[in-house]
Structures are given as structure tokens and as C-alpha cells.
Nucleic acid binder design. Structure first.
Lengths: 126, 126
DNA sequence: CATGACGGTATCATTTCCGATACTATGGGC
DNA sequence: GCCCATAGTATCGGAAATGATACCGTCATG
């Protein structure tokens, strides 16, 4: 479901860059990983953090992250259901990457307001 | 033409991660940036480095990188045409990000062979 | 016995991406 | 006159990613 994995080693030295990119690409994976770096989260907790992701997409992204060995999915046999998502060792190994993305974003990206005052660009600040 | 830019600040703290990701996402941008980190390149030189990218795509990706302020496009009024691509200051500021991606890929990614011997996974080595 | 919480699936429509292919301009060399 | 090189554009179509919406099962509560 994600972008096709590298079928051939078609980009020689830079290939590693693309390979990594493909794994964490996918509209919401970056943010999900970022939030999971801060600790285990339940399904609906993640939903609240990503207000604009549909349930369908969130499930799909989490499943891919799980298949790629980045997150661990723990289901508790309770009612109502309880499912926790946490990072695996491999998932945590992405921390430098995620942090590099975040730092660059904080320092250089800007976000466009689509509503009114088109000249307003807000600097990132948390 | 790239993925839609963030129209709303819809992912709070992790937003910077996604924002950066969107800018360097796009099938070939990562590798292109990686190669340009090593120096200025002409259009066809890049093509040779990315044997599987079509002319159409390469042009598109370079145009986006240009619009995002990462690369500088210099056209020489010669015949046959000569166009050089180099990184801008902003482009070079991505170096830590690209390098983080590359290092992770070198250390953790593996590439699938699509032909035969399905159990063979080659470790990355340049 | 209807409702809500939680964590999903299923199905369909749309948007976006990307590849294949063909075409263009110009001047120099044969 | 024809071909070549360079750096593109234009057009078409298919595949993949994403969004919208509706539905499911179970127990607890009212």
C-alpha cells in the first residue's frame, strides 16, 4: 500500500536516501513516529493528535509502520477494546532522522494560511 | 504539483516534521538533493545518475525544488543548451536532513531483489 | 432496549502521481 | 539537406494514495 519498495538498486549511492524516505513517507507517518517517540499511545490518543486524519488512514499508516518493523501493536483483550502503539528498537533508531526533519522544519519551513491575510507567514513555534 | 502544502496547522507539534517531509518527498527529490550536495550538475548529468527517471519527471522534480528555493537553475544562452543546477543556501541547509536519511538507510535499510532468490537481502554498501 | 466507547472494516469516489511516448528549437558538422 | 546534441514540452493513460461514508461487535450504563 505504501509507495513501491525499491525493486532495483537503481539510484546507486543516493539510493539509501530514497529507501529511507520511502519508509517514512506517507502523509502521516512522520508525525506518528514523532509522537510515538514521546511514548506509547492508544489508537484514539493518536487520532486526537492528528485531527485531520481519517480512521481509515490512521489504521493503514499504523499497519504499514508495524509491517516495516517500526511500531509494536499491543491488543488488550478488553471491552471496549484497548490497543497500544509503541516504537520498536528499529523505530527508535529513526529518532535522528525524525529529529533532523523536525529541526529543519522549525528553522526553515513556514506554513501558509489559506484563509485571508495571504501575506502572513507564521514562524514555527511550539 | 508536489503534495499539497500544509494549508492548515493541523498537526500541532509534529507539524514541522510533516512539513519538511513534504518538501523533500517526491520519488526523486531526495536523491537529487543528495547528488547536488556534491556539486553543481547539468541536466543530463543528473539523468545519468538516475537511470530510471524519465525526462519528464526529472524536469518536474527540479522545477519543484527550484520553486521551493532549494536549487538554482542557471541557463546558458548557448546551443546546444546548457543548464546547470546547484544548491542554494537553503538547499544546503538540508544537508543534515539528507545525511540523516542516508546514514539510516546505510545502516538499516535493505533492498529487495525482485528477481529470483527471494530470500536474499543484500546489505547496503557503496 | 437504546446508546455510547473503542478500534476497527468495507466500499466507493476522487485526487495525485508517475510512466510512456511523441514532439520542439537551434546551431554545428557531414 | 540531414542528423546530432541538449534540454526541454505536450498529451494520454494507468496505478496508487487518500478521502468520505457507512457498518460491525461487545459490554456497561441509563
Amino acid at each position: 500500500m505504501p509507495r513501491i519498495r525499491h525493486k532495483q538498486l537503481d539510484c546507486s549511492p543516493g539510493c539509501a536516501v530514497e529507501a529511507t524516505l520511502e519508509l517514512i513517507d506517507g502523509k502521516w507517518k512522520g508525525v506518528i513516529l514523532f509522537h510515538l517517540l514521546q511514548g506509547t499511545l492508544r489508537f484514539n490518543a493518536i487520532r486526537k493528535l492528528l485531527p485531520n486524519v481519517t480512521q481509515r488512514m490512521l489504521t493503514a499508516q499504523l499497519r504499514e509502520l508495524e509491517q516495516d518493523g517500526f511500531v509494536l501493536r499491543t491488543v488488550y483483550a478488553e471491552v471496549p477494546p484497548k490497543v497500544e502503539y509503541s516504537l520498536t528498537e528499529r523505530g527508535r533508531s529513526l529518532e535522528p532522522v525524525i529529529m533532523a526533519l523536525k529541526h529543519w522544519g522549525d528553522a526553515h519551513a513556514y506554513f501558509e494560511k489559506k484563509t485571508a491575510s495571504p501575506e502572513v507567514f507564521a514562524a514555527v513555534a511550539e
